[in-house]
Structures are given as structure tokens and as C-alpha cells.
């Protein structure tokens, strides 16, 4: 993280970064000599690196839980429609501009509402005889996602070129706008849901044995699904609200951990959070440096970098089917 903070449009020496971070966090050492340096490190770089870590952790954990929840290795916040819900919310506010701002609705708030609304819709449509059925949940998620996507496309057609560029950048994800004051809320949500979901680890494990077996092991499968779906929609909504629609992390990171370190959720979820965080910090670093001084959206790099590695790992894993 320190390395990531030091590299960017302006490179800062690692020792300077360490000094500045240490000064702000613990109050130790002297105040930084160069106020511009302090500004870059503490007000621009540090919050975005922290945010990148939180976003990576949140998306990866949400993906891991959703994959188990619907018994489908392809599931992630995008497939379940959450991300498209967030996108529609964000795009509406961006294109309506002042009108929405008057209603006191920021892009983040709208994205959060969109994601949770999509989650609620999937929840309602995923029921079969009063139970949440895995296959139906996935199909409902995909369908809801398409509806939100087409609505988004329609809104985009009405947008000005300038707005379109903002929309495009938002959809591909970025943590460039990170500020300290938005971090506490995101930190609380990401950490608390990750801890809570890890506590559900033993029950998530029983879901791997199939619904009937989980029931026979004393798990109220339907209630568990409902709780997990709500938690993962909240988690996704929070993360996507501040960082935009970043794909592939939620799909890839959980599988990476499963394939290498096993599927026990009590271990899987914390490790997935950790790896997701590290990965996203790395991706953010690349987004700032690859086309310096311009920035690339995160969504471009997550998949472009991650997919080949993921395919390599799949080829070298035995007994997958």
C-alpha cells in the first residue's frame, strides 16, 4: 500500500510517504516539510489506496457468498444484477444533473439505491413456492440485470457527449475521487459484513452439500439464503456506489482462493477479502501508471490482467469437474 501511495503522476520517495502516513496516523515525527507533497500523499493518494482495498475486499467477498448462495460458480454481483442496478442509479443522476442534485441525491446514493433495489427485485422474483430457489435466483438476477441495462442504455442515448464520458468512466470503475470523509462509512460496511458473513461460514459450508443435506444438518436454508442475499446486496451497493461498476473481481478472486486454499468459508471469506484488497490496490496502481499521466478505468484492468491468469490457473487445476 505504501508503494502504491508513492507511485503516480508524481513519484514520491517511499521514506517520505512512510513519514507522512506515520505522522497523520500516529502524530509521531515532524510535520512534513513540503505541503504539496503532504497534500498529494495524504489527501489524494492515501484515501484512494484505502478505498481501492475496501472495494476489492467487498466485491470479492460478495462474489464468494453469491457463488455459494446460488450454487453457481458463475455468480457474482454483476450476474445477480446488483451492479446494473447501481449503474442505472448513477447514470440517471449523472444525466439528470441538477434536477437530481436538487433532490439531494448524489451519484453514490443513487447507485446504492439502485443496487439494493435490484437486490430486492431478485429476492422477490427468485422465490418458488415461498422458497428462494438457486436456479431461479440466478435467472431472475440475469433478467433484472438486462432490464436495468436496457434502461441505462436508453438514458445514455439522451445524454450529452460530456455526460456520456462521465457515465463511461463511472461504469468502468474508479477510485480516483476518493476522499477521507467517505471512507468511514465504507469501512464500517465492508468490515462488518465480512465479519458477519465469516461467522455464517459453517452454515455456508453446509450449503455446499446441497439444500436437503444442509436442512438435515439443522440449517434453515431459506432464511439463510435471505440473510445472505440481503447482506451481499448491501455490501455490493456500498462498494459500487463509491467505485462504480468494477467487474470480474467478484468472480475471479473467490475462485482463486478456493482453487488454491480450499473452500471452507471460515477461511475462504477472510482470505478472499485480503486477496481482493491486494488485487484492487495493484490494479489501481496500474491504472495510474500504465498511461501516465492519464488514468485508465479500473474495470479495464481487472479483467485484462486477471482473466489470463485465471485461465492459466484453471488449466493447472485438477479434478474441477
Amino acid at each position: 500500500m505504501i508503494v502504491s501511495i508513492s507511485v503516480g503522476a508524481v513519484n514520491v520517495r517511499l521514506t517520505d510517504v512512510w513519514g507522512i502516513v506515520l505522522h497523520h496516523v500516529t502524530g509521531a515525527g515532524s510535520a512534513p516539510s513540503d505541503p504539496a507533497l503532504d497534500q498529494i500523499v495524504w489527501n489524494f493518494r492515501a484515501p484512494r489506496v484505502v478505498l481501492a482495498a475496501l472495494v476489492g475486499a467487498g466485491l470479492a467477498v460478495a462474489g464468494a457468498v453469491l457463488q455459494t448462495l446460488v450454487s453457481n460458480p458463475l455468480a457474482d454481483p454483476v450476474v445477480l444484477g446488483f451492479s446494473y442496478g447501481a449503474t442505472l442509479g448513477a447514470v440517471l443522476v449523472i444525466t439528470l444533473g441538477e434536477g437530481a442534485a436538487l433532490a439531494g441525491l448524489g451519484v453514490s446514493a443513487a447507485a446504492f439505491i439502485g443496487a439494493v433495489a435490484a437486490g430486492a427485485l431478485v429476492f422477490a422474483l427468485g422465490q418458488q413456492r415461498g422458497r428462494l430457489a438457486p436456479t431461479r435466483l440466478v435467472l431472475a438476477g440475469v433478467a433484472v440485470g438486462y432490464v436495468f441495462l436496457s434502461a441505462t442504455s436508453f438514458v445514455q442515448l439522451q445524454a450529452t457527449p460530456n455526460e456520456l464520458r462521465t457515465v463511461m468512466f463511472w461504469m468502468l470503475g474508479s477510485v480516483a475521487g476518493a476522499q477521507w470523509d467517505q471512507l468511514p462509512a465504507v469501512t464500517v460496511v465492508v468490515l462488518s459484513t465480512t465479519v458477519l458473513l465469516t461467522l455464517f461460514g459453517r452454515r455456508l459450508n453446509t450449503l455446499l452439500a446441497g439444500d436437503e443435506s444442509a436442512t438435515a444438518l439443522g440449517v434453515d436454508v431459506n432464511r439463510l439464503r435471505a440473510v445472505l442475499l440481503i447482506l451481499s446486496a448491501l455490501l455490493t451497493g456500498t462498494v459500487v456506489a463509491v467505485a462504480g461498476g468494477i467487474g470480474f473481481v467478484g468472480l475471479m478472486i473467490p475462485h482463486l482462493v478456493r482453487l488454491t486454499l480450499g473452500a471452507d468459508h471460515r477461511r475462504l471469506l477472510p482470505l478472499t477479502a485480503l486477496l481482493g484488497a491486494v488485487y484492487m490496490v495493484l490494479v489501481d496502481l496500474l491504472s495510474r501508471t500504465l498511461t501516465r499521466p492519464n488514468e485508465l478505468p479500473l474495470g479495464i484492468i481487472t479483467a485484462f490482467l486477471g482473466a489470463p491468469f485465471f485461465l492459466w490457473l484453471l488449466r493447472h487445476t485438477k479434478g474441477l469437474d
Binding site: 450454487s71 460458480p73 455446499l208 452439500a209 439444500d211 443435506s213 480450499g262 473452500a263 471452507d264 474441477l320
Partner: peptide
């Protein structure tokens, strides 16, 4: 035939 997906569980 309980279904489920046990990939990765020992």
C-alpha cells in the same frame, strides 16, 4: 444425489 457443489472441500 444431494446436489450441491463440493469443489475444494476435503
Amino acid at each position: 444425489d444431494a446436489g450441491g457443489n463440493t469443489t475444494g472441500l476435503t
